[in-house]
Design a protein around this nucleic acid. Structure first.
Lengths: 346, 346
DNA sequence: TTGTATGCGTTATCAG
DNA sequence: CTGATAACGCATACAA
C-alpha cells in the first residue's frame, strides 16, 4: 500500500513537473505487464473494450490514470484517417456576422465531440485555396466554407473528393449541401420596407464578386432608380468610398452587407439630413442611431445549427456525400427608431 | 514525347477526379526508380536537398508534380513533433474585439508559415481546460490564450511544459510572456474624461471573474461614487441586467467591456435624457449614437502583432521558454459626438 | 481473452 | 550521393 502510494506520488510529481515525455501505450503496457493491443483495446472502450478480462481492464485503467496517459491524436489520426476535427473557412472572421456563426458552430460541434479549426480567407481566393490545400493535408473530417470562388471546379480543385462539405452563406452551382438565406426574398422585403417610406432613388454599395451580394444588388436595383453605384470587396472601405463618391443625394443608400454599412455610417457627418441606410445583418442592431435604418437580418442561430446538422449527417452516413438539397432560410426585416419615425407615403 | 504527355494527362485526369488515394513518397519513389529517402531529401529542399544529384532531383520533382504529391502533414508531425500550427484560445470569439485580434493574428501567422487553430472557450473555464487538453494532444507548436482562470497552476495544469505560450489581454501571476494593455492607466484616462464633463455618480457593470475587468472596475470606483453595481460574465446580458436593476439615475454607466455596453444600449429607451456610457473597445465606434460615450480603445493591431512576435521568438529560440517580460501597451480615449457636445464643468 | 505483427507516411540514422 | 531500415504512437487483422 505504501509502495503503491509513494509510486503514485512519484509519478504524480514526475508528471506534474513534466520532466518526462508523455506516456504512451507502450509505457502503460510495460507497467501492467500486458501488450499494447490489450491496452489499446481497453482504453478504446466500446465493443472491443468490453471483451477484456475485468481484472486486466482495471489494472490498465489504473495505470493509465497513474501515468497520466493522453492518447496522441496525431498518431491516432494517421492510423485511422479521422481527426475528429472539422474546419470552418470563413471569408472574414472580423465580421460579426461570421464570428457569431463561428461561435455557434463551435459550440454545436463541441457538443458532438468534434473540435473546430477556424480559418480565415480574408475574401482572398488565393488564401482560400492555400487553406484548402493545407486542410486537405491535415486530414480534417469535414469542411464548412464560405466560398470566395464562384464555380464548382475552382472550389473543388483542392478539396479531397468525398470529404464532407457544406457551403455556408454563398451558393455555388453544382454543390447541393449548402445553407444560405433566400436573398431575393429578403431583399424584396427590404425594398418594400423602403418603398413604404417613399424611397425612389438609391445609391448602392455592392461587392459583385460575392454571389450573395450580387443577388442583393440586382434585386434591389430592380425596385428603384439607381443614381450611384460603388463596387468593391465586401469590406468597410468600400462603404466609405461609396459615400465619398456620391454626387447627388439619394433617398437611400443600400449596402450589401454590414461592414460596408459601417463604412458609410462612419462617413456621415450631417445628422440633420441623414440618408436612409438599408443593409444586412447589422450587429449589434443600431436601434438608437439617428440614421434611419432598415436591416434584413438573417437567422444566424439557424444558419449555424443547420450547417452543422448537414455536416454531421454526412459524417455519420459515411457514403452519403453531397446528396440532399440546399437549406434555404429566410430573413426578417428590422428597422430602427429613426426609420420608424419616418412618415409613410402611400 | 507523346507518351509522356498522354501520361501526364492521364495522371492529371486521375488526380482531378481523384479516384485514387493521394500520392505518397513511396509512389513517387517507385515512379522514379529511387528510394523514399532520396525523394524525401529532394522534396525537403534546404541543406539536405542540395546534396543530391541534379538529374535525380529533376526526375523526382517532375514525378512529384505529375502525381500531384502533397506531403501528409499528420505523418510529418508525428515524426518531427512539429505541426507548424499554433492555437489561439479566446474567451469569446463573438466579441468583435477578439475576432479582430483573431483576424490579425491569423494574417500575421500565415505570413510566417504557421496556420492558426482558433478555439473558443466561451468564458467557460471548463471548456478552456478541455481545449487545452485537446490542443496538447494535437501537437500544436505554440499557444496564445486569453485565460479565464486566474492562477498559474490552474492554467498550466493541461499545458505541456515548455510549450511556447503567450497570454493575451489578461495577466496571470507568474507568467511572463504576455501582452496586454495598462488597464489602470487607461481607466484613469477614461475617468478623467468623465470628470471633465462633471460626472459624480456612476453605475458599474463589471465581470469580476476577469482580472482585466476587475482592475477596470476597481480603478474606476476610486474616482466616483458608485450608486449601483452589477456583476456577471462579461457578456451582453450582464449589461442588460445592469440597466434594468438601476434604481437611481447615475451620471454615467461604466461597462468593463463592449459586450456589456451593447447590452446597456439595447435597453435604453429615453433618448432625451441618456446617461453617459463609458466602456472599452467599442467596435465599430458609435460616433453618431445620441448617447454620450467615452471609450478606452486598446491598440488592437499592436496587441495582435506583439503577441505573435513574442510567440515567434519562443518558437525560434527553442529553449527560451517563458523568459522575457510582459509587453504592456497603452490605450487611447475616444469620445463620440454626443459626448463632445456635453458642457464641460471645471 | 490476449499477444504478435503489420502498416499509416514521414523523417532520421547509418551504411555503402 | 544514395539506399535500406528504424522509429513516431496507435489501431487492427490474424494467431494463439
Amino acid at each position: 500500500m505504501t509502495s503503491k502510494m509513494s509510486l503514485a506520488i512519484w509519478y504524480g510529481v514526475a508528471l506534474h513537473f513534466s520532466c518526462m515525455k508523455p506516456a504512451t501505450l507502450v509505457d502503460i503496457a510495460r507497467h501492467t505487464k500486458t501488450s499494447v493491443s490489450t491496452v489499446s483495446r481497453v482504453l478504446a472502450g466500446g465493443e472491443v473494450g468490453r471483451r477484456i478480462g475485468h481484472d486486466t481492464t482495471q489494472r490498465v485503467r489504473e495505470a493509465a490514470k497513474l501515468l497520466g496517459y493522453r492518447p496522441n491524436l496525431i498518431a491516432r489520426t494517421l492510423r485511422t484517417r479521422r481527426s475528429h476535427t472539422v474546419a470552418l473557412l470563413v471569408s472574414d472572421i472580423a465580421n460579426p456576422f461570421f464570428s457569431s456563426i463561428g461561435s455557434l458552430v463551435e459550440q454545436s460541434l463541441h457538443q458532438q465531440g468534434y473540435s473546430l479549426m477556424l480559418c480565415n480567407s480574408g475574401e482572398d481566393p488565393q488564401r482560400e485555396q492555400e487553406y484548402l490545400q493545407l486542410l486537405a493535408q491535415k486530414a480534417i473530417d469535414g469542411l464548412i466554407v464560405v466560398p470566395t470562388v464562384h464555380t464548382r471546379n475552382e472550389l473543388m480543385q483542392n478539396i479531397p473528393h468525398g470529404l464532407p462539405l457544406v457551403l455556408l452563406d454563398r451558393q455555388v452551382e453544382g454543390i447541393n449541401s449548402s445553407v444560405y438565406s433566400d436573398q431575393e426574398a429578403s431583399t424584396n422585403l427590404l425594398a418594400q420596407t423602403l418603398k413604404r417610406v417613399g424611397v425612389k432613388t438609391i445609391a448602392i454599395a455592392v461587392a459583385p464578386s460575392v454571389v450573395t451580394h450580387r443577388i442583393r444588388g440586382e434585386t434591389m436595383a430592380a425596385w428603384f432608380e439607381v443614381i450611384s453605384r460603388e463596387e468593391g470587396p465586401p469590406l468597410k472601405d468600400t462603404g466609405r468610398r461609396a459615400f465619398i463618391h456620391l454626387s447627388a443625394r439619394p433617398d437611400a443608400i443600400i449596402c450589401t452587407n454590414n461592414a460596408m454599412a459601417d463604412g458609410v455610417i462612419e462617413c456621415i457627418a450631417d445628422i440633420n439630413h441623414p440618408p436612409i441606410i438599408a443593409t444586412y445583418d447589422a450587429l449589434p442592431v443600431p436601434h438608437l442611431l439617428p440614421i434611419p435604418m432598415a436591416i434584413a437580418m438573417q437567422d444566424i442561430p439557424a444558419l449555424a445549427e443547420e450547417c452543422v446538422r448537414q455536416l454531421m449527417r454526412q459524417l455519420k452516413d459515411e457514403g452519403y456525400g453531397d446528396a440532399g438539397c440546399p437549406t434555404v432560410l429566410s430573413a426578417r426585416i428590422v428597422t430602427n427608431r429613426a426609420f420608424d419615425a419616418l412618415p409613410t407615403r402611400v
